[in-house]
């Protein structure tokens, strides 16, 4: 008995020493804390009428955008005379899983980029085409089309290695109180999901359905357009769409939704 306790104590000391060594030398960052351990999709917070529109690919108006995105995929744009398909061929094969792992660290850029930004990198650097404005109809059509190819696949972003500092900044943004209402993102989406804010049922704020057809806007919207709305709602000054702040936040949000199936293009109120 005594011998065993002594052995355990020894093991503990060894682990402690190892931990101290880790803290001093550069090594893998600690696993981040997950406030919501079993995330729920926004569809769990939608009415049956809204879900009926999402669950029928014909009724879902976002498929008007998907079809435009598919046409653009195969259509050459820019001075290089290339289309997306010139490099990536059949999107149903080449884009499968892409939405699930974005935003992602781009080594050449030395930062995390969103799917929208990656499309624009392709356009400017490969196709000789101008950037598409974030949240423009053309760009939302393209990301809806690309996103659809991952529908049903679990969200799976990689926050390790060089991506980690961007993740940490996104987490910090998430947890920073802002606006005249002095609220953090989690004030609604962690502390109060399942409760009503006036007539709106607060969701967990999961991003797995974006881009989404929003009933209010009656169009497909990008995640960062919605994020601007959230910051406005707490009477804050939202960062620009495509800004570093929102890109890092989008990266953190994707990790929060880790494991949830991609629902792009979803329908939300």
């Amino acid at each position: 008995m005594a011998r065993r306790a002594a052995f355990l104590a020894g093991a503990g000391a060894a682990a402690l020493a190892a931990g101290l060594a880790l803290a001093q030398a550069p090594g893998p960052a600690p696993e981040p804390h997950r406030t919501i351990t079993s995330p729920e999709s926004g569809r769990n917070y939608a009415t049956p009428e809204t879900l009926a529109i999402q669950d029928d690919d014909f009724q879902n108006p976002a498929f008007l955008w998907v079809e435009e995105g598919e046409q653009a995929w195969n259509h050459p744009a820019g001075s290089a005379g290339q289309s997306c398909a010139s490099c990536h061929q059949d999107a149903t094969a080449s884009m499968r899983g892409v939405r699930a792992r974005y935003p992602a660290y781009n080594a050449a850029k030395g930062r995390v980029v969103t799917l929208e930004q990656q499309v624009n990198i392709c356009r400017t650097e490969r196709m000789g085409a101008p950037e598409l404005r974030i949240d423009s109809r053309e760009l939302n059509a393209m990301t809806a089309f690309i996103g659809l190819q991952s529908r049903g696949m679990p969200m799976n972003v990689d926050i390790s290695g060089p991506a980690r500092p961007f993740f940490d900044r996104g987490e910090e943004f998430y947890n920073t109180r802002r606006g005249q209402l002095d609220m953090r993102c989690g004030s609604c989406h962690e502390d109060n999901y399942g409760r009503s804010l006036r007539a709106d049922l607060l969701s967990q704020g999961m991003s797995n359905g974006f881009p989404t057809y929003r009933l209010k806007e009656q169009r497909v919207i990008s995640l960062q357009f919605r994020l601007q709305g959230c910051v406005n709602d707490v009477r804050g000054e939202p960062p620009a769409m495509g800004s570093e702040e929102f890109t890092n936040l989008e990266f953190y949000l994707a990790w929060r939704a880790q494991g949830l199936p991609v629902e792009t293009p979803s329908v939300r109120r």
Binding site: L197, A199, D200, R226, N232
Partner: peptide, 8 residues
């Protein structure tokens, strides 16, 4: 017709 809390 509900008046939502999330104007954004």
């Amino acid at each position: 017709v509900t008046i939502g809390g999330c104007g954004g």
